[in-house]
Nucleic acid binder design. Structure first.
Length: 485
DNA sequence: CCCATCACG
DNA sequence: ACGTACGTGATGGGC
């Protein structure tokens, strides 16, 4: 199983102060790995987790290790995604990590200051209304204040039996008391400040003056990447104030930030895998897919009959399908009755019967074979499908539905990344790929190379030939927010 | 160290 | 009749 080997074998060198120099200029001494003199081991005896297969393009020795690891793994690999995709991609990721991204720390410093002021005001109001001071950040203390002192109706308990004070619970309390809303407001500001505004500037590397994330190729069970130290795949965007953070992601002098993202890639993948004619024709003709879904679910004859409420509901169904949605989950998210949600799902499957087939096929496949796989053959084993525990089995079923979809989308963008990076390097362009956020690629485009944008978009759209076209939206600007179309 | 919460696709 | 949508990572509280 590829993932299992890669988890242990191919973590790239850490991008701390030391290793940037290390990566660029110093070949890894082979003796560090196999020892020397009479302690010297054969290459074959080196535990896989000590091998660093692809750290430095310029170092012969790392290349040898890379080749060695390829051979070593070849005997064990079930498929060739490792060779065709993940090994080549590891070099692309190493380049992106080393390149890093510029951060406007003055902007973030000002932002932090403004956040702190607002938090201080909220804090005072909360203490006033609660009638005492307490730690707002402590769910335990907050629970006591809200549900014992103020006698507000407690919602769900957490799984450890304590009062839940999460977003869903506090929102429902909004009309009982002012405090819950103030808490929510305080939390969102606090999150922005501690996780982003304060943290990012402190991670600027002194040598490069940029921040360097780690891309982990081996943790996500679906084949997605993960980003850490810092995580640059969860930079805020959903609210007006939070997306200010994105203004701090800026290009170096003479460049612009360009962002290109796949439109509806997971739904397109479902359309392809399930071969549902309705959905394929909707994507082929470039229709508004949520409006089209609304027409089908609510049995409307004409697109002009689709209200914004229809569309909103249909969008939520489309969103939930790849997760193995339930009537309960849909009802919760839409604030509608269980019965209405159930009816919508039934109507959906009646109109998109092949999607239902896909779900049933996935469940049957995983029960028979113990795994599911993506278009390129990446596998996820789901042993819980045999569990006597109903809950674990249900989770495994939903994961079996989701992984081929999420994973195929990951395969596609990985393939695009390899071809774009190779092309940028081979042609000697100054522009570089900086970041990947699951369905989005972010570049730094040199001012003389703006013509590259349409070629990048083209390469992304032709990364895979599906039964539906792939569509990419893109934009360019003086920072990430402006670039994100 | 785990838990709860919340940021993203 | 069961509990409740998939995949991640960072933070602060509290034991």
């Amino acid at each position: 199983m590829i993932a299992a080997y890669l988890v242990d074998s191919s973590q790239r060198l850490k991008m701390d102060d030391l290793s940037i120099t290390y990566l660029n200029y110093t070949p890894i001494p082979i003796t560090d790995l196999i020892g020397s003199g009479k302690d010297q081991k054969s290459m074959a005896d080196v535990p896989l987790d000590e091998l660093v297969p692809y750290a430095c393009e310029d170092a012969d020795i790392t290349y040898q290790l890379y080749e060695y690891l390829k051979q070593k793994l070849a005997a064990d690999l079930l498929t060739d995604v490792a060779h065709s995709l993940d090994f080549p991609l590891s070099r692309v990721l190493a380049r992106m990590e080393q390149k890093g991204v510029s951060i406007d720390k003055n902007l973030l410093a000002d932002f932090s200051e403004a956040l702190q002021k607002d938090m201080d005001m909220l804090e005072a109001q909360i203490y006033e209304l609660a009638g005492e001071r307490f730690n707002i950040q402590s769910p335990a203390q907050l629970g006591t204040i809200l549900f014992e002192k103020l006698q507000l109706p407690a919602g769900k308990k957490t799984k450890t039996g304590k009062y839940s004070t999460n977003e869903a619970v506090l929102s429902k309390l909004a009309h009982h008391h002012q405090v819950p809303n103030l808490i929510l407001e305080y939390r969102s500001l606090s999150k922005l400040k501690s996780t982003y505004s304060d943290a990012l500037p402190s991670l600027i590397n002194e040598q490069t003056n940029r921040i360097h994330t780690d891309y982990n190729q081996c943790v996500a069970a679906t084949g997605r990447l993960a980003s850490s130290n810092p995580n640059l795949q969860n930079i805020p965007i959903r609210t007006a104030r939070s997306r200010e953070i994105r203004k701090a992601f800026i290009p170096q002098q003479g460049f612009q930030i360009m962002s290109a993202d796949y439109s509806q890639i997971e739904l397109r993948v479902i359309a392809h895998i399930s071969e549902d004619e309705q959905m394929i024709s909707a994507f082929k003709s470039g229709e508004d897919i949520h409006a089209r879904t609304a027409m089908e679910i609510f049995q409307l004859d004409n697109i002009t009959q689709v209200t914004s409420d229809h569309r909103r509901k249909a969008k939520e169904v489309n969103f939930g399908i790849p997760y193995g949605l339930s009537a309960f989950g849909l009802a919760q998210n839409l604030g509608i009755s269980n019965a209405e949600a159930k009816q919508m799902i039934e109507a959906y499957f009646e109109r998109f019967p092949r999607i239902l087939n896909y779900i049933e096929d996935s469940k049957n496949f995983v029960m028979e074979h113990g795994y599911v796989s993506t278009l390129l053959g990446r596998r996820r084993y789901l042993p819980d499908i045999e569990s006597p525990n109903w809950n674990l089995r249900a989770f495994a079923e939903r994961a079996a539905i989701n992984m081929p979809i999420q994973g195929t989308a990951a395969d596609i963008i990985k393939s695009a990344m390899i071809s774009i990076d190779q092309w940028l390097i081979n042609e000697g362009f100054k522009s570089r790929m900086l970041l990947q956020v699951h369905d989005e690629l972010i570049f730094e485009i040199h001012e003389d190379e703006q013509a590259l944008c349409s070629i990048i978009v083209n390469k992304m759209e032709s990364a895979s030939e599906l039964k539906v076209p792939l569509k990419v939206d893109w934009g360019m600007g003086a920072h990430w927010l402006e670039a994100h179309s």
